[in-house]
Design a protein around this nucleic acid. Structure first.
Length: 949
RNA sequence: AGGACCAUAGCUCAGUUGGUUAGAGCGCCACGUUGACAUCGUGGAGGUCGGCGGUUCAAAUCCGCCUGGUCCUACCA
């Protein structure tokens, strides 16, 4: 093995080898285990969230595979409608100076396919760098042919059951992207805004009870005034009761609109009158429905004022009895410009009563960043009510379990208040809606145009045109778990791997994706999509900030793996910023945080860091310190392995079961502790507590195997006195425990474990004849019969004595390497036996040239002392003592013991404690008290001796 | 407005059904290159577990209130 651990040397090599050997495919044997990757955007690149999520999925997958499960990790990518279309649109604009309309639909979508070909490999290459053991032979894309079929099938069937319908409805319209978006794609942002109070003159000479000839309405959106259908007052509001059924004259427009009574009007707010614009406000739309008001649309798809309004009834049919005329002055103005002009004109007309500054919330498109406009358009919807019931029930009855459980509440809350899902998007990139129109506007839904004609008996000469819209990306990704397995065909894969075992996902897409998958999958397969949902948090930077390009705090997982020079990192973070003026601050912060850039850490260290930080479902602050620490851990494992190999290669390691072995205490102890570690790691994995799993492994490897067992093996291997059987036993234990450690580590750290295992396994006699891979080895099982409590206690004693001597060295300022004499005294016969049995270990590890049992404590020379249980460890030191320093140290120690004693005495003096606490607890306190008192006695005796000098 | 989650060492975090001398890693201090490893070893300093109150023999842990933070849902005509 190389002297230093160099991850870059081994990681790519092993991945290629595994892939070439087809080790990621399901074995076809054993209980199935399957995970569907949340498909990343096909043209995207790997960010920290992916890296985190992929690590968890891969750890689960490798672990279950080693357990002998028939394991499938299904991979694929998502076409990501809006995101991808925007990206290519920008690219075309930059390179050719054209927009998509210049190219036309076909040429533009060809460009996207080209771009997918070109860049689609990036994310999958990065997935490979993470070590993801996905079955590449089954890679899918949400717009591949099979998925088209599944999507069409689902659409047609839902339509046949009238669970998909088309209608003119108010939707969230993105005026920049020219498409409808779902509620979930709207981001509400708080701002300061103006709140204008307008006078609407009463028509026909009517006046209010207090003699006013107008009503006052207030709005944050004056431009929608053009589309007002009514003014509403609360039915309970006595002030305006006489006006209900009367009319106001809509200023600037001149249209007569009624005063209606509706509970939406809040008597407490403003004047109690509210303008109603059913075509431009969701609440008003509901009022319109209740009061039978016309929908008057005054905006174009660019959110500019129309020349003439369009009026519809609630069924979306044109209304001819509404005067569509609008003031010519506003035609063509954008909504914000129109707002200014309307406010100015109202003021000029003396109809502006006051302007308040208020804080309000505005809806923004999460992709375009534009203000979303509620707009009346023809769209397709899924009626979700019928689908939601079973989806709620599946979680309620435990068919689907969320981990952690509290996300179930979030799911229920959302599912119980579900609006119909607008699934049509006015985009070009996506699944085209399988609906055709004749020139009279009749719509035919079918799997193909041919099927539409056949189904509806349409003559060949009747011209049909397909719906221009595409489906929401989440419509197709909702079919992910069964679509990838071949549905609508009843494939063997579907039978074997569905429902999938666990979905690993972020809480941010529970609504977008998880909920819709559950609804769609239950509807079409009658099965839940997955049995468990492991929900993880967001990966934030070290300060807890969300990572974002604009903040300049993004870390690229690949840079953490390979390292990156400071200048390159600064360049990466400051290039192509939306706000270039931030570049300087970002560069400064980056230089301060990473003065030397980022060193290479390797994939295994990165994975281990994610796992160690993966605590139950909350956001993680990515900690560079831990990344360094776990890189060091890899290095530690590497070097420990070198030690083992140096001592075992070419030697008799007892692989032959018949050979004679003489197990030492250390051997029995480490094997025992290994069993417990195996049990701990397994349990942690079952509970999705990857932090506990990684911690248990780390502790065992570093603090027990390396710090103690390796040290304890040295005297046996290097000392002349040990028998051949003892040496063989130690080599066998060294090798076998290491081999098991590697298997235990493999799901978390696949590369280093494989690299070392290839060397160690032959010595342990576990490498199969075909060359094998650790990937396909059995997961280590704890063997209860190898747990040896006696050995653990003996080793604890041994460690206690060694630490006691080290403590004495530190306290007395004795060089660590200086050979010392030690005496053990007091204690019981067991202590004397332990000394006799462990003289070799003791003298080597504590650097003692002599260690003896002293029967009569009174014979002890002046010594530095430490207590191990009842027993005292003495290092004679008459010539080494600094009287004053020692007395000061003793005083401090005695004080500490007295505080502990005081605390316990107080407890034991408390009668109700003794009376009410369980006997075991009281006993434990008494035992502690005895220990502390013994320690104090020793210290006091010591003080007396020193004082007597 | 409603809800969720969080607050433990300078930093990032563990702490299972209440009983521990409250732990780990990083950082810090001192000493140390003995034949796996200075990406290391040995020893050490550092916390009244956000605040107040309650339940209990016993609270970091359970309950209530408060403060601070993160986030979600809804509303703001």
């Amino acid at each position: 093995m190389d002297k230093t651990y160099q991850p870059e040397q081994i990681e790519t090599r092993w991945y290629e080898r595994w892939e070439a050997d087809n080790r990621f495919a399901p074995s076809g044997e054993g209980e199935p285990f399957s995970i569907m990757i949340p498909p990343p955007n096909v043209t995207g690149s790997l960010h920290m969230g992916h890296a985190f999520q992929d690590t968890i999925m891969d750890t689960l997958t490798r672990w279950r595979r080693m357990q002998g499960r028939n394991t499938l990790w299904q991979v694929g990518t998502d076409h990501a409608g809006i995101a991808t279309q925007m990206l290519v649109e920008r690219k075309v604009a930059a390179e050719e100076g054209k927009n998509r309309h210049d190219l036309g639909r076909e040429a533009f979508t060809d460009k996207i396919w080209e771009w997918k070909q070109e860049s689609g490999g990036e994310i999958t290459r990065q997935l490979r760098r993470m070590g993801a053991s996905v079955d590449w032979s089954r890679e899918r894309f949400t717009m591949d042919d099979g998925f088209y079929r599944a999507v069409q099938e689902v659409f047609v069937r839902l339509h046949e059951e009238e669970l998909i319908y088309r209608g003119k409805r108010l939707v969230n319209w993105d005026p920049t992207l020219h498409t409808a978006i779902s509620d979930l794609e709207v981001e509400n942002r708080d701002q300061q805004g103006s709140f204008w109070h307008f006078r609407y003159p009463l028509a026909d000479g009517v006046t209010t009870d207090d003699g006013q000839d107008h009503l006052v309405v207030a709005t944050t959106r004056p431009e929608t005034l053009l589309g007002d259908s009514a003014v509403a007052v609360n039915p309970e509001d006595a002030r305006y009761a006489s006006l209900v059924g009367k009319f106001v004259e809509l200023p600037l427009v001149g249209r007569r609109i009624p005063v209606v009574a509706d509970e939406h009007a809040d008597m407490e707010k403003g004047s109690g009158c509210v303008k109603i614009t059913p075509a431009h406000d969701f609440n008003d739309y509901e009022v319109g429905k209740r009061c039978g008001l016309p929908l008057i649309n005054v905006f174009t798809q660019d959110a500019a004022v129309r020349e003439h309004a369009e009026a519809f009834d609630l069924q979306g049919r044109p209304l001819l009895d509404v005067d569509p005329s609008l003031p010519a002055a506003y035609a063509g103005l954008g909504r914000f410009e129109a707002r200014e002009r309307i406010v100015a004109d109202m003021e000029a007309a003396g109809l502006l009563e006051q302007v308040e500054i208020v804080s309000n919330t505005l809806p923004y498109g999460d992709r375009s960043g534009d203000v979303i406009e509620p707009l009346l358009t023809d769209q397709w919807f899924v009626a979700v009510e019928e689908l939601a019931g079973p989806a709620i029930a599946a979680v309620e009855n435990g068919d689907i379990e969320f981990v952690p459980k509290n996300y179930e509440n979030m799911y229920f809350a959302w599912m119980r208040d579900l609006q119909d899902w607008c699934i049509s998007r006015q985009l070009w990139w996506g699944h085209r809606i399988p609906a055709w129109y004749d020139d009279e506007g009749n719509v035919y839904v079918a799997r193909s145009e041919a099927e539409a004609r056949e189904k509806h008996g349409l003559p060949a000469e009747l011209a049909l045109t397909q719906d221009e819209d595409v489906l929401d990306t989440w419509f197709s990704s909702g079919l992910w778990t069964f679509g990838t397995l071949g549905w609508p065909e009843q494939t063997p894969e579907l039978a074997t791997f569905h429902p999938t075992s666990v979905l690993v996902t972020g809480f941010d897409i529970i609504f977008f994706w998880v909920a819709r998958m559950i609804m769609m999958t239950l509807k079409f397969t009658g099965e839940v999509p997955f049995q468990q949902v492991y929900v993880h948090g967001l990966v934030r930077d070290g300060q807890g900030q969300k990572m974002s390009k604009s903040k300049g705090n993004v870390l690229d997982p690949i840079d953490l793996i390979d390292g990156i020079a400071l200048e390159t990192l600064v360049e990466k973070r400051t290039s192509s910023l939306m706000q270039p003026q931030k570049a300087k601050a970002i560069a400064k912060a980056t230089r301060a945080e990473f003065p030397k850039g980022i060193e290479p850490h390797g994939t295994d260290a990165l994975r281990f860091t994610f796992l160690s930080q993966a605590t139950t479902g909350r956001d993680i602050k990515f900690d560079m310190g831990r990344l360094d620490g776990y890189r060091n851990f890899c290095n530690k494992l590497w070097n420990a392995s070198r030690y083992v190999l140096m001592n075992a290669e070419g030697e008799d390691c007892g692989a032959d079961e018949g050979s004679e072995v003489e197990l030492s205490l250390a051997d029995r102890w480490i094997v025992s502790r290994l069993q417990q570690t195996q049990a701990q790691v397994t349990q942690a994995m079952e509970e999705f507590r990857f932090d506990h799993a990684s911690q248990a492994l780390y502790d065992f490897v570093w603090n027990e195997y390396c710090d103690w067992y390796l040290e304890l093996s040295k005297p046996v291997l290097w000392d002349e006195g040990a028998s051949a059987a003892a040496k063989r036993a130690t080599r066998r234990t060294l090798v076998r425990v290491l081999e098991a450690i590697l298997r235990l580590a493999h799901p978390m750290m696949p590369f280093i474990s494989e690299e070392i295992w290839q060397r160690v396994a032959p010595l342990a006699g576990t490498l199969s004849a075909d060359g094998g891979s650790i990937m396909n080895q059995p997961w280590p099982l704890a063997d209860e019969s190898l747990v040896d409590e006696r050995a653990t206690r003996d080793i604890e004693w041994l460690k206690g004595v060694i630490v006691a001597v080290r403590n004495i060295r530190a306290e007395m300022n004795i060089a660590p390497g200086k050979p010392l004499e030690a005496l053990l005294t007091k204690g019981g016969p067991e202590d004397a036996e332990r000394l006799a049995a462990n003289r070799l270990f003791l003298s080597k590890l504590a650097k003692l040239e002599r260690v003896e049992w002293l029967d009569d404590p009174a014979q002890a020379p002046l010594s530095a002392t430490q207590l191990v249980g009842e027993m005292e460890v003495l290092v004679p030191m008459a010539d080494l003592i600094d009287k004053d320093a020692e007395l000061a140290r003793l005083a401090k120690e005695i004080d500490k013991q007295e505080k502990l004693i005081g605390g316990i005495e107080k407890k034991l003096d408390n009668e109700s404690f003794v009376a009410k606490a369980p006997e075991a607890v009281v006993e434990k306190e008494r035992a502690k008290l005895a220990d502390f008192e013994a320690a104090r006695r020793l210290l006091v005796e010591q003080r007396e001796k020193i004082e007597a000098l």
